[in-house]
Design a protein around this nucleic acid. Structure first.
Lengths: 135, 135
DNA sequence: TTAATTGCAAATCCTTTGCAGATTC
DNA sequence: GAATCTGCAAAGGATTTGCAATTAA
């Protein structure tokens, strides 16, 4: 498995940096961290490395509402987010039933190596009340 | 409800255009359609209108892997997508159990007016075999 | 009237690409 | 040694913003 291409110092560094974070991080963040750690890596290279890993299904990819792409090495503690569209508060939620459903659907459709993204967006209690009181 | 701001010809047009499509569409697509239909509307205005609707929870928002943002008026026939990361094939999947779960989680956390996005990304049968046969 | 909204174009931000030089196999 | 990979900077594409002119209320 994984016979494509050559392995370079930079690719190893990017993968290591990604593994060291349990959360989703952006390419720019990774690049900054690598630079801060003394690694000499170009931003474009970070993008290229992440692109390859993502093609190979080795990382989970997530696109934020503002268009920034976030990456996380697969199989970290897995959970989803419930986000308030008023104040941005984020609540982490586990979803064993959704995981199961995703696996079943994938199998039924003949897909393999499936990852999933789930996002819930709503109004938290506080913001909901703020709306009711609007002028 | 919805007491903010003034109602302009452009806003009405954007909303109408959005309603006329059952699928997700981008701001640029909407703008093109509106122009084609003879409406005189600026692209920035389309973005501003969609932004407001989305703040108010009046549309479902979805961000594609390439960073483009798609919009759909709420409560159209609701389903999710299973996408092949090899060839881009998309399968529509219903998910009553997920809908139920989303509603429950929202309620438990005190959130209201919650919409959700679910995306499954994997390798379809054909692409999976192609990988196995790789040179 | 008069404050909100529009339209345009310039500005931003993330991401991709062209190409010469460095590097892995 | 030869094909691949990197780095830089320039290009690309979607979205946002400044500001004068327009328009809803």
């Amino acid at each position: 498995m994984s016979s494509e291409g050559r392995t370079t110092r930079q690719q190893v560094a990017v993968r290591a940096a990604l593994d060291s974070s349990a959360e989703f991080v952006s390419a720019q963040q990774l690049h900054a961290e690598l630079r801060a750690a003394g690694e000499r890596v170009g931003l474009a290279t970070v993008y290229r490395a992440l692109g390859k890993m993502s093609e190979g299904g080795e990382v989970d990819v997530l696109v934020r509402p503002d268009g920034e792409t976030l990456y996380r090495s697969c199989s970290s503690g897995h959970h989803h987010h419930l986000i308030c569209r008023g104040c941005g508060t984020t609540v982490e939620v586990a979803a064993p039933s959704v995981e199961r459903w995703a696996r079943d659907v994938a199998e039924r459709e003949g897909f393999s190596d499936v990852s999933h993204t789930v996002e819930l967006v709503g109004l938290c209690r506080a913001c909901s009340q703020a709306v009711d009181m609007a002028p």
